[in-house]
C-alpha cells in the first residue's frame, strides 16, 4: 500500500502546480524512477531474508515487484499516450533510433508474463517451471538499469548507483557466493560454541 504514495504525491504535485514547467517529463521521470526503485527493492527481498534472516522481507517480494511493474506500465502509457498522443510514426521513429527506448520496452515485455503468473494459482500450475520463468527478472531489471544509463546525458551517478546495487544483488545469488556466505555464517556459529 505504501507503494501507492509516490503516485499520489505525483498527482498532488500536479494538482497543486508543484511540477516543473515540463510536467510531461516530470511524470515520465518520476514514474520511471519509482518503477526501478520498487523492482530493485523486490530483488533485494530474498538476499535480505536468507543472509540476515529477516524473513518478513520475503512476504513483500511479490507486492514490490507488482507495484514496480505497475509503475512501469504507467510510465509506458505516459510515454505513448500522454506525451506522444499515440502518434505512432513519431513513436516508431524514436524506437528505431534510440536504443534506450528499445531496451526499456524489452524489459517491460519480459515483466508482462511474470506479472501475469505472479498469482498462487499460476505458481501451482507451473510448478518447478515457475521458478525458472521468474528468473527472467534477473535479465529484466538489469535491462531497466541500462535503459536509465543510456538515457542520461551527463550526470551518471544515479543510474550507476542502481547498476551497482543490482550487480551486488545478482552476485549474491551466484551459487559460489551463496556457499561462501553460508560457510561464513556457520563459522561464526561454531566460534561462539
Amino acid at each position: 500500500m505504501a507503494a501507492l504514495l509516490p503516485i499520489t504525491h505525483l498527482l498532488w504535485d500536479t494538482w497543486r502546480g508543484n511540477l516543473t514547467v515540463n510536467p510531461l517529463q516530470d511524470w515520465t521521470f518520476r514514474t520511471g524512477d519509482w518503477a526501478l526503485r520498487l523492482l530493485v527493492a523486490s530483488l533485494a527481498c530474498t538476499p535480505i531474508a536468507t543472509i540476515f534472516g529477516f524473513k518478513q522481507a520475503s512476504s513483500v517480494r511479490r507486492a514490490l515487484g507488482l507495484y514496480g511493474f505497475g509503475y512501469a506500465v504507467v510510465h509506458f502509457f505516459i510515454f505513448i499516450g500522454v506525451d506522444y498522443r499515440f502518434a505512432f510514426d513519431l513513436i516508431w521513429d524514436d524506437l528505431a533510433t534510440k536504443r534506450y527506448i528499445l531496451v526499456g520496452l524489452v524489459a517491460l515485455l519480459i515483466f508482462m508474463p511474470l506479472a501475469i503468473t505472479s498469482t498462487r494459482a499460476w505458481m501451482k500450475r507451473l510448478g518447478r517451471q515457475w521458478k525458472q520463468l521468474h528468473k527472467l527478472t534477473y535479465i529484466a531489471v538489469p535491462l531497466a538499469v541500462v535503459h536509465y544509463i543510456w538515457l542520461v546525458k551527463a550526470d551518471l551517478r544515479d543510474p550507476l548507483l542502481y547498476a551497482t546495487i543490482v550487480a551486488v544483488l545478482l552476485l549474491l545469488r551466484l551459487p559460489w557466493v551463496r556457499t561462501q556466505i553460508s560457510k561464513l555464517k556457520y563459522r561464526r556459529v561454531f566460534q561462539k560454541l
Binding site: L24, L90, D93, Y100, W150
Partner: peptide, 21 residues
C-alpha cells in the same frame, strides 16, 4: 537527423501539453 537520447522529430513546447512536430 536523430539523436540517441531525445526525439528530434518532435518536441515539447514549454507551456503546452501536446507534442509538436
Amino acid at each position: 537527423v536523430s539523436h540517441p537520447r531525445w526525439s528530434q522529430s518532435s518536441e515539447r513546447r514549454i507551456g503546452e501539453m501536446a507534442r509538436r512536430r
